[in-house]
């Protein structure tokens, strides 16, 4: 495979307060803050990663979790090469809602790589990894459990995503 430099847009999807912003902060800045502040608009963070001799500038779009009007929200998906669909282990409804997040994302960008993250794995879980995995299989997505607080699997999730994105763009 040819080596090269890529700039790739990645979106974070999922309900409010599932930990999307915390995951980005953990991965990009290696910090975690317990205080919750609702995001507004969209924040874009850049992280450069090297995979198999290629350099990827990952532009991570942290999208507002409170869905209001689809047309406005979906504008942010355009041009994305992949997404993390994030749910919160302590709130089963956030897993159920992934269907709608995935649906609207794929309706704009098509069949791009998506990894499902069960976040807040350090807290008491209200559904199991098996349930999450079963859902992931049904929609053809890799599944990982993460904790932005402890950092569990955060690096791994982005690495896996980087590989998938690279396969897709090469």
């Amino acid at each position: 495979m040819p080596e090269g430099k890529y700039i790739i847009k990645l979106c974070l999807l999922g309900d409010g307060a599932v930990g999307k912003t915390s995951l980005v902060r953990r991965y990009v800045f290696d910090v975690f803050d317990d205080k919750y502040l609702v995001s507004f608009g969209t924040k874009v963070s850049k992280k450069t990663m090297s995979i198999e001799g290629s350099e990827i500038d990952l532009m991570i779009w942290d999208i507002l979790g409170q869905k209001s009007h689809a047309a406005l929200h979906e504008a942010y998906y355009r041009g994305a090469a992949g997404a993390f669909a994030v749910c919160d282990y302590t709130r089963p409804d956030t897993l159920k809602n992934l269907k709608s997040w995935l649906g609207s994302f794929r309706s704009i960008v098509g069949e791009m790589p998506v990894i499902i993250l069960g976040n807040k794995s350090d807290l008491e879980k209200r559904f199991t990894f098996q349930e999450l995995e079963a859902y992931g299989q049904s929609v053809g997505c890799l599944v990982l459990e993460t904790s932005a607080k402890t950092g569990q699997n955060v690096e791994l999730a982005f690495e896996q995503m980087g590989k998938k994105l690279l396969e897709a763009v090469r």
Binding site: V38, F40, G41, T42, L64, Q66, S68, H69, L72, H73
Partner: peptide
Amino acid sequence: EPIWMEAGLSRI
């Protein structure tokens, strides 16, 4: 409130 938050001009 929701459409304002989506636009990203500020919190409201």
